[in-house]
């Protein structure tokens, strides 16, 4: 009984605190008026305006390109990193590497952002597309690693030996055995890295410059100037996309969880 009440309470609270503001924002994106104070009637005016706003469209494009590139490169590096951690024979060394990887995931974005700012300044890397891409790749790698490692740990340890024993070179072991077996983790890792990049504000805020901006940073700056309901429309679109991605993620994860690629016995 108590369990039921507390669960319902939790759901209600979550709904009020998290979803209510979002729904409020979404509802007003369809407002024909100019403010979030009164709903004057249903209209797609803000969406239309958004579509004609070339600046915004370019920023959206930038954001997606950065997300795709950083997720792709992070997936490649993350895969190699996960395999390297998996194949580290010294258990203590392996634990240290794993912990260092996990620390990066839980450390605050602001700190990561500042450290990149310092790094790029020291190495005179121009702020803009390049710096944002580098930063996003860097903070996405640990996420990919953490998605792939469990898949590797699930494998029968002798599988790699067996492949070598049967004549496979290091590359063939990777391409024919490891890659197919970690694919579910890799796909989830890619999607997670993609969404991380897509909605990152804190890190991007520190390392962007020279007129290059992403959606999250742009929304922040325009919100400071004064709320236009165009932002509501944009936020609504992002929310819907994120929602769809989340559903895709779970579909993949459920499929990955049912994977038959587990230990033989």
């Amino acid at each position: 009984m108590f369990k039921k009440i507390s669960r319902n309470l939790f759901l209600t609270m979550m709904f009020i605190f998290l979803y209510f503001p979002i729904f409020y924002l979404i509802i007003y994106s369809f407002n024909s008026g100019d403010t979030m104070v009164s709903f004057d009637g249903f209209s797609l005016k803000w969406y239309r305006e958004l579509l004609h706003n070339k600046d915004i469209l370019i920023i959206i494009l930038n954001t997606v390109i950065v997300a795709l590139i950083s997720a792709l490169i992070a997936s490649i590096i993350g895969t190699l990193g996960a395999i390297a951690i998996y194949q580290t024979k010294n258990k203590q060394k392996q634990n240290i590497l794993y912990s260092l990887n996990s620390v990066l995931i839980i450390s605050p974005d602001v700190i990561i952002g500042i450290s990149f700012l310092l790094l790029f300044t020291v190495f005179a890397i121009p702020f803009g597309f390049m710096s944002v891409c580098l930063a996003h790749i860097a903070f996405s790698i640990p996420v990919v690693v953490i998605m792939i490692l469990p898949k590797l740990n699930q494998l029968n340890g002798n599988i790699i030996y067996a492949a070598k024993d049967l004549g496979a070179s290091e590359y063939q072991v990777f391409s024919r055995i490891l890659l197919p077996l970690i694919k579910p983790g890799l796909i989830i890792g890619f999607f997670t890295a993609f969404t991380y990049s897509l909605d990152d504000f804190a890190v991007t805020f520190f390392v962007t410059g020279n007129g290059f901006t992403t959606l999250a940073v742009n929304i922040y700056s325009s919100a400071r100037i004064g709320i236009s309901l165009e932002i509501n429309a944009l936020s609504t679109i992002i929310f819907v996309i994120t929602f769809v991605m989340a559903i895709l993620y779970y579909i993949f994860e459920i499929r990955g969880g049912k994977s038959k690629y587990v230990k033989n016995n």
Binding site: N156, N158, A162, D165, L166, S169, I177, K260, Y261, N264
Partner: peptide, 20 residues
Amino acid sequence: IEPNKRLVNTVFQDYALFPH
């Protein structure tokens, strides 16, 4: 010589078959 170049083959305790 690396294992993949040796003319011996192994049957593993837990079979180590490729699950995919």
